[in-house]
Simulated assay, not measured.
Amino acid sequence: MIDAALLPLQRRLLEPLARAIAARGISADHLTLAGFGIGLLAIPSLAFGSYGVALTLIALNRLFDGLDGAVARLASPTDRGAFLDIALDFAFYALVPLGFALADPAQNALPAAVLIAAFVGTGSSFLAFAVIAGQRGLRPEAYPTKGIYYLGGLTEGAETIGLFVAMCLFPDLFPVLALIFAAACAITTLTRWWQGWQAFAQPPA
Protein backbone atom coordinates (compact mmCIF):
# COMPACT_ATOMS: atom_id res chain seq x y z
CA MET A 1 0.00 0.00 0.00
CA ILE A 2 2.89 2.40 0.69
CA ASP A 3 5.61 0.94 -1.54
CA ALA A 4 5.16 3.59 -4.24
CA ALA A 5 5.65 6.38 -1.69
CA LEU A 6 8.71 4.76 -0.12
CA LEU A 7 10.57 3.85 -3.32
CA PRO A 8 11.93 7.35 -4.14
CA LEU A 9 13.33 7.69 -0.61
CA GLN A 10 14.80 4.19 -0.78
CA ARG A 11 16.53 4.99 -4.07
CA ARG A 12 18.08 8.19 -2.73
CA LEU A 13 19.38 6.43 0.39
CA LEU A 14 20.81 3.42 -1.44
CA GLU A 15 22.33 5.09 -4.49
CA PRO A 16 25.72 6.02 -2.93
CA LEU A 17 26.25 2.49 -1.61
CA ALA A 18 25.03 1.01 -4.90
CA ARG A 19 27.58 3.09 -6.82
CA ALA A 20 30.37 1.89 -4.56
CA ILE A 21 29.29 -1.74 -5.01
CA ALA A 22 28.97 -1.42 -8.79
CA ALA A 23 32.44 0.15 -8.97
CA ARG A 24 33.83 -3.06 -7.50
CA GLY A 25 32.30 -5.15 -10.26
CA ILE A 26 29.56 -6.72 -8.14
CA SER A 27 26.47 -7.32 -10.24
CA ALA A 28 22.83 -6.98 -9.30
CA ASP A 29 22.32 -10.72 -9.76
CA HIS A 30 25.13 -11.44 -7.28
CA LEU A 31 23.39 -9.23 -4.72
CA THR A 32 20.04 -10.93 -5.33
CA LEU A 33 21.51 -14.39 -4.78
CA ALA A 34 23.57 -13.32 -1.77
CA GLY A 35 20.55 -11.63 -0.20
CA PHE A 36 18.46 -14.74 -0.65
CA GLY A 37 21.17 -16.87 0.93
CA ILE A 38 21.28 -14.52 3.92
CA GLY A 39 17.50 -14.67 4.16
CA LEU A 40 17.58 -18.45 4.21
CA LEU A 41 19.70 -18.32 7.35
CA ALA A 42 16.80 -16.60 9.11
CA ILE A 43 14.75 -19.81 8.92
CA PRO A 44 16.93 -21.95 11.26
CA SER A 45 17.38 -18.88 13.47
CA LEU A 46 13.61 -18.63 13.85
CA ALA A 47 13.28 -22.38 14.32
CA PHE A 48 15.70 -22.25 17.27
CA GLY A 49 14.07 -19.16 18.76
CA SER A 50 16.92 -16.76 17.99
CA TYR A 51 14.56 -13.98 17.03
CA GLY A 52 17.09 -11.16 17.29
CA VAL A 53 19.45 -12.93 14.91
CA ALA A 54 16.55 -13.71 12.58
CA LEU A 55 15.48 -10.06 12.57
CA THR A 56 19.00 -8.99 11.64
CA LEU A 57 19.12 -11.51 8.79
CA ILE A 58 15.69 -10.45 7.52
CA ALA A 59 16.81 -6.81 7.56
CA LEU A 60 19.97 -7.70 5.63
CA ASN A 61 17.92 -9.65 3.10
CA ARG A 62 15.75 -6.59 2.51
CA LEU A 63 18.81 -4.34 2.25
CA PHE A 64 20.26 -6.56 -0.46
CA ASP A 65 16.86 -6.61 -2.15
CA GLY A 66 16.95 -2.83 -2.42
CA LEU A 67 20.58 -2.72 -3.46
CA ASP A 68 20.19 -5.19 -6.32
CA GLY A 69 17.68 -2.92 -8.01
CA ALA A 70 19.81 0.16 -7.37
CA VAL A 71 22.87 -1.51 -8.89
CA ALA A 72 20.83 -2.78 -11.84
CA ARG A 73 19.61 0.75 -12.62
CA LEU A 74 23.21 1.98 -12.73
CA ALA A 75 24.02 -0.52 -15.46
CA SER A 76 21.29 -2.11 -17.54
CA PRO A 77 18.41 -4.00 -15.90
CA THR A 78 17.90 -7.48 -17.35
CA ASP A 79 14.96 -9.83 -17.64
CA ARG A 80 16.96 -12.44 -15.74
CA GLY A 81 17.48 -10.02 -12.89
CA ALA A 82 13.78 -9.14 -12.74
CA PHE A 83 12.90 -12.84 -12.73
CA LEU A 84 15.36 -13.70 -9.97
CA ASP A 85 14.29 -10.77 -7.85
CA ILE A 86 10.58 -11.52 -7.80
CA ALA A 87 10.91 -15.33 -7.69
CA LEU A 88 13.27 -15.29 -4.69
CA ASP A 89 11.26 -12.60 -2.92
CA PHE A 90 8.11 -14.72 -2.95
CA ALA A 91 10.03 -17.79 -1.79
CA PHE A 92 11.54 -15.79 1.09
CA TYR A 93 8.16 -14.42 2.15
CA ALA A 94 6.75 -17.94 2.44
CA LEU A 95 9.76 -19.33 4.30
CA VAL A 96 9.63 -16.84 7.18
CA PRO A 97 6.27 -18.15 8.51
CA LEU A 98 7.66 -21.66 8.15
CA GLY A 99 10.48 -20.70 10.51
CA PHE A 100 7.97 -19.60 13.14
CA ALA A 101 6.01 -22.83 12.65
CA LEU A 102 9.17 -24.84 13.31
CA ALA A 103 9.86 -22.80 16.45
CA ASP A 104 6.55 -23.75 18.07
CA PRO A 105 4.49 -26.18 15.97
CA ALA A 106 1.69 -26.51 18.51
CA GLN A 107 1.01 -22.77 18.61
CA ASN A 108 2.25 -21.53 15.25
CA ALA A 109 1.78 -24.25 12.63
CA LEU A 110 -1.86 -23.56 11.75
CA PRO A 111 -1.55 -19.74 11.67
CA ALA A 112 1.63 -20.13 9.59
CA ALA A 113 -0.22 -22.39 7.12
CA VAL A 114 -3.04 -19.86 6.84
CA LEU A 115 -0.57 -17.04 6.25
CA ILE A 116 1.38 -18.99 3.62
CA ALA A 117 -1.90 -19.80 1.84
CA ALA A 118 -2.75 -16.09 1.92
CA PHE A 119 0.68 -15.31 0.44
CA VAL A 120 -0.10 -17.74 -2.39
CA GLY A 121 -3.22 -15.70 -3.13
CA THR A 122 -1.42 -12.36 -3.21
CA GLY A 123 1.57 -13.75 -5.10
CA SER A 124 -0.39 -15.67 -7.72
CA SER A 125 -2.75 -12.76 -8.42
CA PHE A 126 0.22 -10.39 -8.65
CA LEU A 127 2.11 -12.60 -11.09
CA ALA A 128 -0.94 -13.54 -13.17
CA PHE A 129 -1.74 -9.85 -13.66
CA ALA A 130 1.91 -9.12 -14.52
CA VAL A 131 1.98 -11.84 -17.20
CA ILE A 132 -1.11 -10.56 -19.02
CA ALA A 133 -0.10 -6.92 -18.57
CA GLY A 134 3.33 -7.72 -20.03
CA GLN A 135 1.74 -9.39 -23.04
CA ARG A 136 -0.31 -6.23 -23.62
CA GLY A 137 2.67 -3.92 -23.20
CA LEU A 138 1.26 -2.20 -20.12
CA ARG A 139 3.50 -0.35 -17.66
CA PRO A 140 2.55 0.67 -14.11
CA GLU A 141 2.63 4.45 -13.69
CA ALA A 142 3.36 4.19 -9.94
CA TYR A 143 6.30 1.79 -10.44
CA PRO A 144 7.98 2.79 -13.72
CA THR A 145 11.36 1.21 -12.87
CA LYS A 146 10.09 -2.25 -11.97
CA GLY A 147 11.14 -5.12 -14.23
CA ILE A 148 7.60 -6.48 -14.43
CA TYR A 149 4.15 -4.95 -14.04
CA TYR A 150 3.89 -4.18 -10.32
CA LEU A 151 0.30 -4.31 -9.12
CA GLY A 152 -0.18 -2.63 -5.76
CA GLY A 153 -2.55 -3.59 -2.99
CA LEU A 154 -3.32 -3.41 0.70
CA THR A 155 -0.39 -5.72 1.55
CA GLU A 156 2.79 -5.01 -0.37
CA GLY A 157 6.47 -5.40 0.42
CA ALA A 158 6.70 -2.71 3.10
CA GLU A 159 3.72 -4.07 5.03
CA THR A 160 5.05 -7.62 4.82
CA ILE A 161 8.45 -6.62 6.19
CA GLY A 162 6.76 -4.63 8.93
CA LEU A 163 4.87 -7.81 9.81
CA PHE A 164 8.07 -9.86 10.00
CA VAL A 165 9.71 -7.24 12.22
CA ALA A 166 6.72 -7.27 14.58
CA MET A 167 6.76 -11.07 14.68
CA CYS A 168 10.44 -11.16 15.59
CA LEU A 169 9.99 -8.52 18.29
CA PHE A 170 6.85 -10.15 19.70
CA PRO A 171 7.08 -13.85 18.80
CA ASP A 172 4.36 -14.83 21.29
CA LEU A 173 1.93 -12.79 19.20
CA PHE A 174 2.76 -14.69 16.00
CA PRO A 175 -0.64 -16.46 15.74
CA VAL A 176 -2.60 -13.22 16.10
CA LEU A 177 -0.35 -11.25 13.76
CA ALA A 178 -0.37 -14.04 11.16
CA LEU A 179 -4.15 -14.34 11.09
CA ILE A 180 -4.71 -10.57 10.94
CA PHE A 181 -2.25 -10.21 8.08
CA ALA A 182 -3.73 -13.23 6.29
CA ALA A 183 -7.09 -11.47 6.35
CA ALA A 184 -5.48 -8.34 4.88
CA CYS A 185 -3.84 -10.51 2.20
CA ALA A 186 -7.25 -11.97 1.36
CA ILE A 187 -8.53 -8.43 0.74
CA THR A 188 -5.51 -7.74 -1.47
CA THR A 189 -6.15 -10.92 -3.45
CA LEU A 190 -9.81 -10.10 -3.98
CA THR A 191 -9.05 -6.56 -5.14
CA ARG A 192 -6.40 -7.85 -7.55
CA TRP A 193 -8.84 -10.40 -8.96
CA TRP A 194 -11.30 -7.57 -9.50
CA GLN A 195 -8.65 -5.38 -11.12
CA GLY A 196 -7.70 -8.20 -13.47
CA TRP A 197 -11.35 -8.87 -14.28
CA GLN A 198 -11.84 -5.22 -15.17
CA ALA A 199 -8.52 -4.57 -16.91
CA PHE A 200 -8.61 -7.60 -19.17
CA ALA A 201 -12.32 -7.65 -19.98
CA GLN A 202 -11.65 -6.53 -23.56
CA PRO A 203 -9.28 -8.13 -26.09
CA PRO A 204 -5.97 -6.28 -26.52
CA ALA A 205 -6.01 -3.49 -29.09
Rank of each mutant, 00 (worst) to 15 (best):
Pro77Asn: 05
Leu127His: 11
Ser124Met: 14
Ala117Asn: 10
Gly123Cys: 08
Leu115Ala: 02
Arg73Glu: 05
Tyr143Ser: 06
Ile148Gln: 13
Leu74Ile: 06
Thr155Leu: 15
Gly153Asn: 09
Ala113Trp: 07
Asp79Ile: 11
Gly99Phe: 02
Ala166Glu: 01
Asp79Phe: 11
Leu151Ile: 15
Ala112Thr: 05
Pro175Tyr: 00
Leu98Phe: 11
Leu151Lys: 01
Asp68Leu: 06
Ala72Asn: 04
Ala103Asn: 15
Gly123Phe: 11
Phe92Lys: 09
Gly99Asn: 00
Asp104Glu: 14
Leu102Ile: 11
Pro77His: 02
Ala82His: 07
Gly153Arg: 04
Tyr143Ala: 12
Leu67Ala: 01
Phe90Asn: 15
Phe164Cys: 02
Gly137Ser: 03
Thr160Ala: 10
Ala117His: 06
Ala113Lys: 08
Ala103Ile: 06
Gly99Pro: 04
Gly137Asp: 05
Glu156Tyr: 08
Phe90Gly: 13
Phe170Tyr: 14
Ser76Phe: 11
Ala103Asp: 07
Val96Lys: 04
Ala101Trp: 01
Val114Asn: 10
Ala87Gly: 08
Val165Gln: 02
Val71Pro: 02
Ile161Cys: 09
Arg73Gln: 08
Gly153Phe: 00
Leu163Thr: 00
Asn108Arg: 11
Phe170Val: 15
Pro175Glu: 00
Thr122Arg: 06
Leu154Ser: 08
Ala87Lys: 12
Gln107Gly: 11
Ala94Val: 12
Leu127Lys: 10
Phe119Ala: 14
Arg80Ile: 15
Pro175Ser: 00
Ala72Cys: 10
Asp104Val: 08
